[in-house]
Amino acid sequence: MNDTSPIASPLRLIQIPRLAARGRWRVEAMRSINEPLLLWFTRGQGRITVGGITRGYGAHNAIFVPPGVMHGFEVSSHVFGTAIYFGRDCELPLPEEPLHLRVRDAAAQVELTGILDNIQRELDSDRPAHDRAAHHHLGLLGVWLDRQIAQSGADSRPRDAAARLVARYTALVERDFRSGMGVADYAAALGVTPTHLTRVCRQSCDRSAHELLQDRVLFEARKLLAETTIPVGEVSRRLGFTSAAYFTRAFQNRVGATPSAFRRAN
């Protein structure tokens, strides 16, 4: 599991456009974080992939991503909303599986907006016990989620065998993407053929098993190149590539620049 969220206070609210301010790859490529995340979209639309399942999202969609679940979503200049990072030490009772809620009730939309405003107000405050107050409001956000699940009858679990297989595959990728394992290795671990694994991945998220794996690995590569001074050869080794030359070719084919050029630009 790898934390790729912005470094800040344990509980934080970040406007979604800011997440992509230093490159859309930071939100669109597959990755996971070590804390619960709620995405509240208030404007725009696109596609989001969570645990290997791709769905469309639009205004007034709330998407909950548990810690360690691989995800990525499209973001354009028309997309607006808030990302709520609950913090690594969050002890609230929250869903254990990904959840996608389409919140059509206007009162529920207003209620959520009010909760988020209250959290942000306390986080920005210097009044005594403002941190404790912010976490109490966060507790109300957990209650809001519970009520929306109960009212909508939402089932956060994958509903068919293909979706369950892809969810298991992405969980394995998230655990082992630094190992240098290929699709055939993951397929063997899951007890299926590489062809079948690729077929169900395309069915669930319109990407092959190899594309999902490569996207996760190269997100990590871009993050290391952009945020550290680790030599390119060491980045290659840490991500399981057999040689720096092979890593450079794979990176350039996917990103459109060599690792060194990408680092200079970022």
Rank of each mutant, 00 (worst) to 15 (best):
F241G: 00
Q252Y: 06
Q109P: 03
T242H: 14
R26P: 01
H130Y: 12
F86M: 07
L116S: 03
V192D: 02
H136V: 14
R55T: 09
A154E: 12
R254G: 02
G87K: 09
T198F: 02
A108V: 08
S76H: 05
D155Y: 03
A107R: 14
G180Y: 05
P10C: 11
Q203Y: 10
G52Y: 02
R47E: 11
L197N: 03
Q109W: 07
G142Q: 03
S9Y: 04
V255E: 06
A250D: 07
F247Y: 05
D126Q: 13
R88S: 12
S77F: 05
F177H: 08
G256Q: 07
R121T: 15
P93M: 06
D126C: 11
G256K: 02
I14R: 03
R55L: 07
R31Q: 14
D3Q: 10
P10K: 13
H100M: 11
M70G: 11
D89L: 14
A59S: 14
R207C: 10
A133L: 12
R222E: 08
H60E: 15
R207I: 04
R164Q: 14
I63M: 08
V69A: 11
I230V: 15
I7R: 15
H136K: 12
R12P: 04
S243I: 06
R207P: 01
G52L: 00
R88C: 06
E227N: 11
L140C: 09
L112F: 02
Q214C: 06
V27P: 00
K223E: 13
R178N: 10
T258E: 07
S152N: 07
H136Q: 13
F41D: 02
N61F: 13
D89R: 14
T248I: 05
V255M: 06
G139D: 09
G23K: 03
A261M: 02
H136N: 13
A257G: 05
P98W: 00
Q120V: 10
S152T: 14
I63E: 01
S76I: 00
H135E: 13
G114M: 11
L38F: 02
L116C: 04
E227T: 15
F73K: 01
F219W: 08
Q252A: 15
A108W: 10
V69R: 09
A83I: 01
E227A: 09
A163Y: 01
S125T: 04
V166G: 00
L218G: 04
F41T: 07
R178Y: 11
L213A: 07
R175Y: 04
R22E: 15
V173P: 01
P194V: 08
L101V: 08
